[in-house]
Every structure is written in C-alpha cells, then in structure tokens.
Design a protein around this nucleic acid. Sequence first.
DNA 1: CAGTGGTCTAGACCACTGT
DNA 2: CAGTGGTCTAGACCACTGT
Lengths: 234, 234
Amino acid sequence: MARYQDIQNYIMSLINSGYLKPGDKIPSERELAQRFNVSRMTARMALIDLVQKGLLIRKAGKGTFVNELVIEQPLGKLRSFTEEIKSLGHKPGSKLLLLETVKPSLEVAKSLKLSSGTKVLKVVRLRYVDEKIMSLNTSFFPISRFPELLNLDFSSLSIYELIEKKLGLRIVKAKQYLSAVDASASQAKLLQVQKGSALLFLKRITYVMNDIPVEYVEVLFRPDRYTFIIELYR
Amino acid sequence: MARYQDIQNYIMSLINSGYLKPGDKIPSERELAQRFNVSRMTARMALIDLVQKGLLIRKAGKGTFVNELVIEQPLGKLRSFTEEIKSLGHKPGSKLLLLETVKPSLEVAKSLKLSSGTKVLKVVRLRYVDEKIMSLNTSFFPISRFPELLNLDFSSLSIYELIEKKLGLRIVKAKQYLSAVDASASQAKLLQVQKGSALLFLKRITYVMNDIPVEYVEVLFRPDRYTFIIELYR
DNA sequence: CAGTGGTCTAGACCACTGT
DNA sequence: CAGTGGTCTAGACCACTGT
C-alpha cells in the first residue's frame, strides 16, 4: 500500500463520515505532509488523484475543498433512477407524497393511449441522492390496463423493478422529452430552491411490449444536483 | 507557459500530425526529461495529465502508448443543428454576433484538451428556426490545434459541414450535457425572454478521430421553442 | 504579510516486462 | 540484464488570495 493512499483513505473517511461536507476546506498539502510524515509531493499526489476522481476541488492560493455532489446520468441506456444512482456509488432515496386516482389531463391520456375519461393512478414522489433532494416525480399509471399496479408498494425504491417482478411485464422502451421550466411556488418549496429558478424538466413515457405505455412521468430536477449526459456517434 | 506543457504540446503534435498512431509507444519519461532538459518528475507530470485526458495509456514496466480509439455502443445520431431543422421541414437561420480570440476558461481549456494559456476562437451566434429566435450558441474552437479554423466563414449555416469539407476532418462523436439555468439579463435580451426565466442549457464537446476535440459549445435554448427528444431501449 | 496550490529539481529504490 | 513506470524525498521559487 503506497503512502499516498493512506492520505486518500483519511480524506475519504472524513467525507464519508460526514465530518467534511461539500465546500469544506481540507488540510493543506504541507499540513498533510507533516501529519503523515511524507514529502509535500506525496501528499500532493494523493490530492490530485482525488481531484481527478471528482471528490475534491483545488483553488490556487486558497486551498483544497470537498466537491459539490453532482450526479451525471449517461443517457442512452434505459435504467431506473435507483439502478443509476447505485451504479454511481450513491444512495438513492424516495419519499411518497401523494397517491390517488384521478381523471387524466389530455396530454396524460394521450401519452398513455387512453380515452380521456379513463381514470389513472397519480403518484407523486420526492427523490433523494445521499439524503439530498434531487427531483420531484409525478407519475401516472394506466390502472385500467394493468389493475395490478394498484397493489404495488409505491414507497419502495424502484417502481420499475416492481413492475417487472410483480406484474411480469418487461419494460423495453422509453421516450423522453427534455426541457426547462421556472419553479412554481409549490415546486420550489418541495425542492428547496428559489421560486422561479430554472429546473430541468423531463417527460418520459415508458413502454412494455408492443408499444403499450405503462407509465407517464414528469420529473423536475434540481439542475445543481443532476445533469444529463448524452453521447452521440455517427 | 509551464515546461511540462511544452512536452504535452510536443506529444500532441506528434499525434495530431499522424506521426504517432494509436498503440504506438511514445518516448519514456527519462528520455523526454533529457530531451527537454527537465527533471523526470516534470516529464512525468506532462504524461500523467495526458493519460488523464484519455490521450495516452501507461503500462508499468513497458512504457507509455497512444490510446486506442474507443468504440462504444452507438446511442444516438449525431446531426448538425442545420441538418436537424431541415429534416423537420423547417428553415434554419444563423446570425453571427461575435468572433474573437480569447484565453479560455479552465472548463473550456479542459474540455478542448488544451493548456489553459492556449488561445481559442470564440464565436457567438443566434440561431433561428423559421425566422424565430431559438437559441444562443457560444462556441470555442482550438485554433492552436487546427489553425485552418481561422479561415472558416462563421456566418454560414453549418460549421460542422465546413469543418468536414474545408478541414478534411471527420466528426465522429459528441458528448452532451443537459441542464437548466436562469436567463441572465443579457441572455434574456438576446433571446427575447424574461430575465430569470428558465432556459435549457446544453454543453457539447465535439470530437474528431482519436477523441481529439474540435469544438466546445454552450447553447441556451428557449424551452418554448426547443425540446430534446430521446428514445431509450434495452 | 503568511498561507495556498503550481511548478520544478536531482536524485533514490521498487516491481515489473522482455531479451 | 537494461528499461519501464510507480512511488518518494527534501528541498526550491512562483503567482495568487485574504488579512
């Protein structure tokens, strides 16, 4: 085990334990070098590597700081929020805010390929990453088509997983629309941002076999906590 | 200009000129140190930075090599704004607002794989669809790497087309980041929206062969005029 | 001004690869 | 075996930030 790794483990444990939070200053290179009895270059290597991994940020003349948490999602592969966050080494969370049967809007009905009088299940959830609020999700499920949806536990982490396991449906496709909106007063309050501040707005229709919709969802992301990444090729 | 950057520029020029191809071995740390009259640690820093940028690969006991072009799953189709708008049956437009040589920000420099002192060409354009304002594009081009970029007509519709035709470069990949921001006063004025209203914010790095960046661009879209659609499969 | 990260020196010993 | 990158030392001077 190289000596610079001792320093890295030390810094990581301070961050993971919550002792150091995003924005906090960590000890200087010279201080770490002295404390671990290594040369400054060795302490420096430890920090540069953690900067490269996105955990720290350095500012010449000021110091080295714990980086803000930003989740980046590579688009292109259909994965659940839960799968995505876990794969990035973070802890997904969910809080159920509302669960009721409603008459769908025209857009919801059309997206789910339902007649506008057919009732749907509306589910509103706050989504968390590492206990921090990330997004507000409002889902609509076609319970007339899949009545078993009513039996699902919507406070659990991954609804997609439940749909596949309990309903035996295979999710094969999603169509997403990405835009931006101003936060309304109520949205701002739930997401803990300023009213009117910009939110990343995602609409998604998820399909099982034969292009049959199983969910229509609108998600409002805090742009400081979530970024979509898309790689394109030709 | 730091001395390790001289070494980086040297290596990059060997790669860009085609003298060094993917898989080729580059001179060892000790050899570069001697040739550039620096200590081995300095030569080493130059290489480690290029490894981190994905241009080189190192193998202990063997040497340092030019990285292979990574082939990944095609996720979407890379099309220019002009191609896209035309295919939708609309009329694309462009208005050149600014064209100047600037020192890049850290992010721009890093995205273009340049040292931060290397000047870049900044091009600001308003984009139209059917004579309506759609987006504000701020591009940065690595003129040190591709000096011929200075001869392009930036008031023309498709810069990508020009890059491929006049410079003989094939654009093969783009990486996009999507988020949302509040419109600043000046952005709002140009886009003719309310100050502080939500804009869809896109950052894109466009690459030619060997993951060499040819453009970094930030685009602010009016969300009422532009929506990203993404289809996902599994 | 003291403190910070950025760059750099001129060495050293190590494990590993290939001849 | 000679050559490679990996790790490390004990210093140095620099530009920059904040008091």
